[in-house]
Design a protein around this nucleic acid. Structure first.
Lengths: 123, 123
DNA sequence: GTCTATGCAAACGTTTTGCAGTGGG
DNA sequence: CCCACTGCAAAACGTTTGCATAGAC
């Protein structure tokens, strides 16, 4: 039986407020502003539960390491700005699935990571 | 001054023989068949040197973690077979750079990871 | 002989786990 | 009053580093 704890509620608030991919430390710090005693292990355990629940997905970003973001955004990919270090979610997909892999390979999923400069840092 | 040691030579032999992306443990095991006393720390140090030299590049694969592959293959991406667990290098690129990111984002680089079933496992 | 590269072990950062105790149901 | 969840500390995992010494030059 699943229990509703203040710790898990805090994590849900964090993701609701900051609706973007976040790392564990960032999540922990934001969560501690709501529940001061929030523990690292609890964050890891709840993130895993939320991923299993389908509330979150885990991203393994080549530059930023492990990030978590809310589900329900549709197919999208990630843009990493090398100036400000933020990760943006870009809707849509520029992959031509016919050219992606040679004959014989059955492509079921894909992930695209873009690197460059975001609009606000480009100015 | 750089010295040519049997350990580094062994690593170069491993990459020459198995010309595909490999993880540290796999590299270590293969290297130990050539130099029995080969140490983990030595592998890490030499992989770093070889990356700095431009002989190897490091890949951060979402499913396989850190991999190393030889340079000089041109632009390509990686296919992960969920059956055999191998990572394949696919030449070419199916990304339409115009559709990849919205206006305002300056895309300098990208990485694509494909997931599915490879030709030999599909049979 | 010099001094870089190695092997070993300890340190490190991140994530996981064991355990006793708190608190949601 | 249970027992799932928490906090804490230890363990686990991949990677890095300090140090004495082997070995390339």
């Amino acid at each position: 039986m699943k229990r509703r704890t203040s710790q898990r509620a805090a994590l849900e608030m964090v993701f609701q407020k900051e609706d973007r991919p976040m790392g564990v430390e960032e999540i922990l710090n934001a969560g501690r502003k709501i529940v001061r005693t929030l523990n690292q292990a609890t964050v890891y355990r709840n993130l895993k539960i939320m991923v299993d629940n389908g509330e979150l997905i885990q991203i393994n970003h080549p530059a930023m390491g492990t990030l978590y973001e809310r589900t329900g955004k549709g197919h999208h990919h990630h843009f990493y700005c090398r100036i400000c270090g933020r990760v943006f979610e870009l809707p849509g997909c520029g992959l031509d699935s016919k050219k992606a892999a040679p004959k014989g390979f059955i492509t079921e999923e894909h992930e695209i990571f873009l690197f460059g400069v975001c609009p606000s840092c480009a100015k």
